[in-house]
């Protein structure tokens, strides 16, 4: 190895040290502590016995209630991801294509919700979707329904609020992805006789896949780990893994069980990331 490459490597190492140190302290250590906690035994008063047992994992695996919860969580992640793509894609496409002189402002507006905390936006939805909220009042005023629709305190509300909260992330990913292709390809396809529909499905959609996939991964992971929105909008009637971790940690105070569920959720993330990387590789190979 030449002296030059060695010094280059040292420079790289030197530059990564602060980041690695930060990660070790803020991520690896807490995770190690959490893993240790998941092997303790928690009793129902919230008392924690220091020991080494797989009880918490066994409690999860041995109970169909928690399998259902994991399934509902996965469904929520998939559902919110698909809906977010559907509503964000046209917006992102418009933002890329528009020649309006307000383009900058429009992009800023699309991602502006990120400036507000999701707690605030969730409360916003509670107000909008409630029995006396704008949506129900409008529906009733128009004579479409005579009783307010139950749009909060159930799963519907959780989906609506989460899709809106996830949209800016998806739009940002899509915008970055769209930057990769050029409109000449569409003109070429159309000049060869493809109609708009065919052009979209054969040219635009496949070329935007990397952006879609990155957005999907981000939204899925953020959705299944979000607990504020499902908790506030769910009315105590819907339970997901993330809300369960929160409840176990702060309400029933069974930290070992909360830690075990956290690791199970982490395993779910790992599976999703593996799928994402496989899909990405396949697309890049095409």
């Amino acid at each position: 190895m030449s002296a030059k490459t060695r010094s280059a490597r040292l420079t790289v190492l030197g530059l990564t040290v602060p980041g690695l140190l930060g990660l070790a302290v803020s991520f690896v250590l807490p995770l190690a502590w959490l893993l240790r906690m998941s092997f303790n035994r928690g009793d129902s008063t919230g008392y924690i016995e220091e020991t080494f047992t797989l009880d918490s994992y066994a409690q999860f695996v041995g109970d169909s209630y928690y399998w259902d919860m994991a399934w509902e969580t996965t469904l929520l992640g998939l559902g919110v991801t698909v809906l977010t793509i559907v509503v964000s894609y046209p917006i992102a496409l418009f933002l890329v294509r528009t020649e309006s002189r307000f383009k900058g402002i429009l992009v800023a507006l699309a991602v502006a919700p990120l400036l507000t905390s999701s707690v605030v936006r969730t409360y916003g939805w509670l107000v909008l979707l409630g029995n006396q909220g704008v949506v129900n009042q409008a529906l009733m005023g128009a004579g479409l329904v005579d009783q307010p629709l139950a749009l909060i305190n159930n799963r519907i509300g959780v989906y609506i609020a989460l899709v809106e909260i996830m949209m800016p992330y998806m739009i940002l990913c899509l915008l970055a992805g769209f930057g990769r292709f050029n409109q000449e390809l569409e003109h070429a396809a159309q000049s060869l006789g493809a109609n708009r529909w065919r052009t979209f499905w054969r040219i635009v959609w496949p070329l935007s896949m990397p952006g879609v996939l990155t957005g999907a991964l981000l939204v899925f992971v953020l959705t299944i780990s979000s607990f504020v929105t499902p908790r506030l909008v769910g009315g105590g009637k819907v339970f997901y893994l993330a809300t369960e971790i929160y409840d176990q940690a702060t309400a029933t105070l069974n930290w070992p069980f909360a830690a075990a569920i956290a690791f199970i959720l982490l395993a779910l993330f790992a599976v999703v990331i593996v799928i994402y990387q496989r899909a990405l590789r396949r697309i890049e190979a095409q």
């Binding site: 129902s44 008063t45 919230g46 209630y65 339970f239 409840d247 309400a251 029933t252 069974n254």
Partner: peptide, 14 residues
């Protein structure tokens, strides 16, 4: 009540 907290919570849930 504290000793039954988790048992009752599960009962409520289900």
């Amino acid at each position: 009540v504290a000793a039954n907290r988790e048992k009752w919570t599960q009962l409520w849930r289900r």
